[in-house]
């Protein structure tokens, strides 16, 4: 008798186990489609950011490499040539009419030409670019640090984020690429507005005339084709409110891992 019960119980428990396994696998897919799951899972990025901030100092530098390490062909990713008539016109003229507009929570908003930026002290770094897809490429980037550029407009104390608005349209809905970084990242000594790659004027596929370079985050944070920089207290009012084009598609804002 007890053996029969025990056989039934065995079947029940093994059945429950198999069922739970199937549910887990099928269920995870269904769960992935729920916005609540997405935001719950993504919230772990704030714990990751806090932990990495505790372990890594604000000025710790990304490793720099030698000329011998530079990739023969740096992989171009994302938009390769913005299909934007305004941008195309600027490019046709060698970006002579291009201006970087800097405004928002700053004391003195400005518009800087490429020559203005080139006349500033420049930093050259040979650093590794890590794509969210998993690959890495090493290149040499040149340009002023964002810290120096922001010093010219004098950020107000309320400014918490640097928004970067770009020239590349991403979809038919009229969304353009944009990104945001915090002031701590903006002040990092390796955060550049790069106008050169490997000693040459930045080619269009890499984000001409100006792109952001960060030493300690993934490629999608490094906005290309930058047109406007705006200092803000919150990135919520922009796009779908997640701080960037890819963040609006479900990628983590932190992007440090």
């Amino acid at each position: 008798m007890s053996e029969i019960i025990s056989v039934r119980r065995r079947r029940l428990i093994l059945g429950l186990g198999a069922g739970a396994g199937t549910l887990l696998l099928g269920g995870c897919d269904r769960l992935s489609n729920l916005p609540q799951t997405q935001s719950a899972l993504l919230s772990a990025q704030w714990l990751t950011r806090a932990a990495q901030r505790a372990l890594v100092g604000p000025d710790a530098l990304a490793p720099e490499y030698t000329r011998a390490d530079i990739a023969p062909v740096f992989r171009a990713n994302g938009t390769l040539d913005p299909s934007n008539p305004q941008y195309q016109a600027l490019a046709a003229n060698g970006f002579r009419d291009w201006r970087l507009k800097i405004d928002g929570l700053v004391e003195s908003p400005r518009e800087l030409s490429l020559d203005d930026l080139r006349s500033m002290p420049a930093q050259t770094q040979i650093t590794r670019h890590d794509c969210v897809e998993g690959w890495s490429c090493i290149g040499q980037w040149t340009g002023p640090t964002l810290r120096d550029v922001l010093a010219r407009v004098i950020p107000k104390p309320q400014a918490r984020y640097v928004m970067l608005f770009c020239a590349d349209p991403m979809d038919s809905a009229g969304d353009y690429y944009y990104e945001s970084i915090d002031m701590r990242t903006a002040a990092h000594p390796q955060t550049l507005l790069a106008y050169e790659l490997n000693g040459e004027t930045l080619p269009i596929q890499y984000g001409a005339p100006l792109r952001l370079r960060l030493g300690r985050q993934l490629g999608y944070k490094m906005a290309k084709y930058v047109m406007r920089i705006q200092l803000v207290a919150s990135y919520r009012p922009f796009g779908q409110g997640h701080g960037g084009y890819w963040e609006d598609q479900g990628y983590a804002w932190y992007a440090g891992i």
Partner: peptide
């Protein structure tokens, strides 16, 4: 794979939550 369809953002969301 999790999720089944190609969906890097969600794969990363699962991975970096459960890593903790």
């Amino acid at each position: 794979t999790l999720p089944g369809p190609r969906w890097l953002a969600m794969g990363r969301a699962w991975h970096f939550f459960f890593a903790w």
